[in-house]
Nucleic acid binder design. Structure first.
Length: 291
DNA sequence: CGCATCCCCTGCCTGC
DNA sequence: TGCAGGCAGGGGATGC
């Protein structure tokens, strides 16, 4: 489900509730999600203070006092909600975001502030890990993660360098988390459309023969940053179940130009939006104005 | 090695 | 109305 803008939206929602609070109780309700929970997961978290909440790629990372990081991934359908005591009855959320099926509430974190953070994930593609802070950079989850597109490192030169020599389709290369971190299917499709670039062209076609950035590379890098910034400002995209932690819907989905719009006219050129499959995933694009 | 395919799981939508 | 099939925002394992 969530790509960089959705995960960042969740981070911004959770951070004020979690930072500085102690974990007074952790309720782990099943042994695994996508992967087994760490041994003694709840026990190891209880009593710890959360110093802050970061994001790297599509991962949320809680800095714990002491030496550990709590790493959380939302998979396709994971979400968090914040419940406050006393304001809406026994444990009910302040604002409406209770999932339809609380059977998929898999973890609850009780905080010293009285708030409760609940993780819900119907498909259970998400996971949580505890890793030593000193292992962060070298950890298997993070050692091969590419550059952060909003961290100032994404420009035409970086794109050209990353994509030089790659025969993979541009769409696939943009989805590769070891090259650029945090892009997913929606924002890749939307960025390519805005840049007028075909998802089918070879990734290497963004690099000049001397390895430098083509004009297309410079344009695409700028557009990716713009699209992500717009989406973060909009609170992400709400298709099925993504919501902000306060229950509000993101609204970037109203800005989609191609994603989910098969057979509809392209607002740019009047062509028809097509849907194809690349690397097993749907690609939406306009054959008229994306070259 | 780089790239494509399959698969994990549940829910929702479509068409019969 | 029920049921089968297809599809979904991610990404790890496998095989060519």
């Amino acid at each position: 489900m969530p790509e960089l803008p959705e995960v960042e939206t969740v981070r911004r929602g959770l951070e004020p509730a979690m930072a500085g609070a102690w974990l007074t109780n952790v309720d782990q309700r099943r042994p695994d999600l996508r992967f087994p929970f760490p041994e003694r997961f709840a026990e190891r978290l209880t009593g710890r203070r959360i110093d802050g909440l970061r994001r790297r790629a599509k991962y949320l990372i809680a800095d714990l006092d002491g030496a550990d990081l709590l790493v959380m991934h939302l998979g396709m359908s994971g979400s968090f909600r914040i419940e406050q005591p006393g304001k809406a009855g026994h444990g009910a959320p302040v604002l409406g975001n209770r999932p339809k099926n609380s059977a998929h509430d898999h973890v609850a974190f009780d905080l010293s502030t009285g708030a409760r953070i609940v993780y819900n994930d119907p498909r259970r593609f998400g996971f949580m890990q505890l890793i030593p802070r000193s292992d962060f950079a070298a950890h298997p989850l993070f050692k091969n993660i590419g550059l952060e597109p909003l961290g100032g490192a994404l420009d035409g030169a970086a794109l050209a360098r990353l994509f030089a020599g790659k025969t993979a389709p541009l769409k696939s290369a943009l989805l590769d988390q070891s090259l650029i971190a945090g892009l997913g299917n929606i924002y890749v499709c939307e960025s390519l459309h805005r840049a007028g670039l075909s998802p089918l062209r070879a990734a290497a076609s963004l690099a000049r023969k001397d390895g430098g950035p083509s004009k297309r590379a410079i344009l695409l890098a700028r557009i990716i940053r713009e699209v992500l910034e717009e989406a973060v400002a909009a609170g992400g995209s709400s298709l099925r179940d993504h919501r902000r932690t306060d229950g509000a819907l993101g609204y970037f989905q109203h800005s989609f130009r191609v994603y989910g719009r098969e057979h509809q006219p392209c607002a740019q050129c009047g062509g028809v939006v097509r849907r194809i499959t690349q690397s097993g995933r749907a690609t939406f694009y306009c054959g008229g104005c994306q070259r």
